[in-house]
């Protein structure tokens, strides 16, 4: 690790004031410290946010929204009884990620800023436009079987590894941030950026901005009875997604009155397509409908390397997640969250 300055500000204002180019905010550290060890990231200063007061609460706001402080730990959010009742799919997504130990340390704010697992980003000896703008992309003709099939560019084919973010995208979350220029809100759809020509710009955060909270609108809790997160992976647990899908449905009189679908591990951000959701409204849930929705969600998908199989896998995962959601949220969190071995197969 390259030496760095360390400061632990007492207030959010102090934290923002401490920011300078090359500095990094430290939350749970589960991703940042790891990347500092490999040398992929070498911040000159760490601004420790973990002791900031007031950012570790889960609150029910007067308007019915749920507000999650950025320093709430992933495990605490997933196991918060009220939260898990209102947003069971978000809890399931959280519990399908990483391990018990990592979830105890990782903050929800930090989860939004998780870096890609692309091996060439992680390895400081490989050219990577995301890590080192203009260096080139080693992944494009390298070991890329797990990388993007949507929204990628010639400059970068990385995927976002977060499970939580896929669920948040489906739930219309809003990110509250504060920075040198004051506070603002960013809708989740706008939060993560596609690479385009500037893959080094990963989020809509301005320099020095801090995530202070994530808000879930009251309306999203209306999906609580029919929502699932489904994640394919190369082992039963403690693995990043090959592909994943967050699906949520709302029914009125046996017809679909509301639908949400977001795909994970397919692009540099959670992938949500409004048309795929809209076409389900007013319909009766069945396999054909969910296949059609998956078709539309994957419209434009193309291999960025040796990963064409991900298109079919993502399609099937999306359709299955919708079918599972239609079947209903399980009464209890599955023993293997988001696994096909925690639910039912339909074929």
């Amino acid at each position: 690790m390259t030496p760095f300055d360390y400061v632990r500000p007492a207030s959010l204002a102090d934290a923002i004031a401490a920011w300078e180019p090359g500095a990094a905010y430290l939350g749970g550290g589960t991703n940042l410290v790891d990347l500092m060890k490999t040398g992929a990231l070498r911040p000159g200063k760490l601004i420790d946010l973990t002791r900031l007061p007031g950012l570790d609460r889960i609150e029910a706001l007067a308007n019915g929204d749920t507000r999650i402080g950025a320093l709430v730990r992933n495990a605490d959010l997933a196991h918060d009884a009220d939260f898990a009742r209102a947003f069971p799919m978000v809890a399931e997504a959280l519990l399908s990620g990483a391990s018990g130990q990592l979830r105890n340390a990782a903050t929800v704010g930090g989860n939004l800023l998780q870096r890609t697992r692309c091996a060439y980003f992680q390895d400081p000896h490989s050219p990577c436009n995301r890590r080192d703008p203009g260096a080139g992309c080693a992944a494009r003709s390298g070991d890329n079987g797990g990388l993007a099939i949507l929204g990628w560019s010639a400059a970068c084919i990385a995927t976002n590894p977060s499970d939580f973010c896929v669920a948040l995208a489906a739930m219309d979350a809003v990110v509250e941030v504060e920075g040198p220029d004051g506070a603002r809100q960013i809708s989740f759809a706008d939060f993560h950026l596609l690479p385009g020509e500037t893959p080094e710009r990963e989020t809509a955060l301005h320099p020095g901005e801090v995530i202070v909270a994530i808000r879930l609108p009251a309306a999203s809790a209306g999906f609580r009875a029919h929502s699932r997160y489904l994640k394919l992976r190369d082992r039963t647990s403690y693995a990043f997604a090959l592909v994943s899908a967050a699906a949520a449905l709302r029914f009125e009189g046996g017809k679909i009155a509301g639908a949400r679908l977001a795909l994970g591990a397919v692009a540099a951000r959670p992938w949500r397509v409004a048309e795929a959701e809209a076409l389900m409204i007013g319909q009766t849930p069945d396999r054909a409908l969910f296949d059609t929705a998956a078709d539309v969600a994957l419209n434009g998908a193309a291999p960025s390397g040796d990963n064409g199989h991900k298109i079919a896998l993502a399609h099937r995962t999306a359709a299955r997640a919708l079918a599972l959601a239609a079947e209903g949220t399980p009464a209890q969190m599955p023993a293997f969250p988001a696994s096909v071995f925690g639910g039912h197969a339909h074929a």
């Binding site: 589960t30 410290v33 790891d34």
Partner: peptide, 19 residues
């Protein structure tokens, strides 16, 4: 490297002591 910090299990390899 799992230890308990304030009663919770965490990976001590990713925890900076100074924090």
């Amino acid at each position: 490297c799992t230890v308990l910090v304030d009663g919770r299990r965490v990976n001590s390899c990713l925890s900076l002591a100074v924090t």
